[in-house]
Design a protein around this nucleic acid. Structure first.
Lengths: 334, 334
DNA sequence: AGCGCATATGTAAAGCATTACATCATGCTT
DNA sequence: AAGCATGATGTAATGCTTTACATATGCGCT
């Protein structure tokens, strides 16, 4: 591996000139520049990133932590984040935290260690380890919350209007004649889950069906969707089930089938997220589409802004969602 | 941010001692060690990784490139890779290459720049940019091919017995009475795709049905599965379609339905990979399960071995696969 | 007492790129 | 022709850690 010194020697210039050729070519005379570039080519010189990072204290890396990479919803956000990062000359370090606070903190340490320049974290729960940093730096801390948000903390975020989206779904189900609706939420600790619930409640109230609303508490997983749906079907005569994730909607559909009923004839099922496979389920799933790739893109853009500006810039970006009506929902049986 | 010098000063020792407390505690007297540790605690000292990397030329990072992170098949491999890397004290840089050779090379550069210590790449196609490195270093190059392999190049790899798995699927379909079988392959350039085709052919020959084999050429995507299946259904009276990816099997199922036929009554459909959603399709998909997480784990283990041993160690690890029979395949109509 | 060895710690170089500041040359102005 | 602005390049410090080598201390042994 050749270093900048080798290049300088061979091109008969100082290391400063070599460095300038690479970073500020306009400052170097054309003839010199060409000579240096030729040597760089010959020696296949690549600047040592560690040395550059050490000198400039910029790692050109951002950390993206995700609770479950195998969930295509998160995978798409990562896709957007990777793209935005790459275009800005950053690379992405991936942290799969498996919903484990321990791992979340372990990864967040990389930010304190300045091993990365910024952090996009998906999911609720700001790692404790960052609380000092955030209270010191406020919204200048290079941290962005993707798809969730953290009420009370000065952390910028990118998400959809969860309450509005959930309300829309209730409007839609009510318009199909459903009045006995089961809801399967995400974890209560998740602000977006409680936002969705608020949206559900206010819409239900508007339609005068809040009394017959049945709430089951899930955790976004297929299994919890199945279990909670079974309870809703057995104990309450719901005619529609609205799950706060597509995964749970898959579980709920299985529960409908397991109960000897069919979807959507007997029970309508709706999800949230519009994951890649929602359209391939049978019946295809009615759901709320989130602009996942865009969430990832914007989260990184926001992060870069914070990192570069250095000025106070707490922002919560709301992106548009979309109610996607497919075949898993239908008018209530007469 | 405090540096090792701050710690040394405050603990009244040299920086060497501080460094030793962290890396070789046994060399330091207990009293001194405790004193230093206490200061480290107080100052929240974290060693600067860039400086360490510069000094030791170890980045403690590995690069994992993947053609499409939103495909759950790859996402699971990444999961395994991340886990193995984390346990070994490495972090994972994620490269989503979108099947683009340009991007593959761009990411591979990180290895030449020693920005990462090793590379696990998923998909066929070793980046050109690495060919010099590989021909120089042979199998000592810190490169491992996950789930594919590169015949002719000294690159270690981890994959299943693709020919054997494909043959098993043909055996199974033949046992159901199918003799007119359509195949939808992946790209021809992919060695595993051609291995699967070899397996298909030899099994078909064994069953005496090779003459009625119909081959369509896909690219692993849902869309290509749909298009190729349509051709197979229209132009040839196939009674079973075996796709070399679950995604294509989803497309093929759509094509069966679009032709007014039903699966599996009229046409059986089988896939490959056993992605997370294969079981949730209706009918649930018969497929070959690959141990995805394990592939990721082993790929990283192999990489670490190569990086640490430094000795000649070209290996191709074959992991077990599994034929998963679900509801998308059935006996041929009488 | 003197020697040697083990243990504990310090000194300082090295790893490589960036960049503020210094120097030098050139050409223009008056 | 002297003076100066401008442009081009060099000098050297800096960032922080690791580690080979040097030094110092203490102990046991003869």
């Amino acid at each position: 591996m050749s270093s900048i010194i080798d290049v300088a020697r061979r091109a008969a210039v100082s290391t400063a000139t070599v460095s300038r050729v690479l970073s500020k070519p306009a400052l170097v005379k054309a003839a010199t520049r060409d000579r240096v570039l030729k040597v760089i080519e010959e020696l296949k010189y690549e600047p040592n990133r560690a040395a550059r990072t050490l000198r400039t204290s910029r790692a050109s890396k951002i950390l993206v932590t995700v609770p479950d990479i195998s969930n295509p919803f998160f995978a798409n956000i990562i896709r957007g984040a990777e793209e935005a990062a790459r275009h800005a000359g950053y690379s992405v370090i991936l942290g799969d935290t498996r919903y484990d606070p321990e791992l979340e903190s372990q990864y967040a340490l990389m930010l304190l260690r300045r091993e990365v320049d910024g952090l996009v974290f998906l999911g609720h729960r700001v790692p404790d380890i960052l609380s000092d940093m955030i209270s010191e730096q406020g919204s200048n801390a290079a941290v962005v919350n993707g798809c969730e948000y953290s009420p009370g903390l000065p952390v910028s975020s990118v998400h959809i209007d969860n309450a509005g989206a959930a309300a829309e779904m209730i409007d839609y189900l009510a318009s199909l004649g459903h009045s006995s609706i089961g809801i399967i939420t995400g974890p209560l600790a998740s602000p977006i889950s409680s936002d969705r619930l608020k949206g559900v409640r206010s819409a239900a109230k508007r339609h005068g069906i809040q009394a017959s609303l049945q709430i089951g508490k899930g955790d976004y997983s297929v299994g919890s969707g199945f279990t909670e749906a079974q309870k809703l079907i057995r104990n309450h005569a719901v005619t529609a089930i609205f799950c706060f994730s597509d995964e749970m909607a898959i579980g709920a559909s299985e529960a409908v089938a397991a109960a000897g009923l069919s979807c959507p004839q007997d029970i309508s099922v709706a999800g949230f997220d519009d994951i890649r496979f929602a359209r391939f389920l049978r019946p295809s799933l009615t759901t709320i589409a989130q602009p996942t790739v865009e969430i990832g893109l914007q989260a990184v853009h926001l992060l870069l802004e914070i990192m570069n500006d250095g000025q106070e810039s707490l922002r919560n970006i709301t992106l548009p969602h979309d109610l996607i009506v497919r075949k898993s929902t239908a008018a209530r049986k007469a």
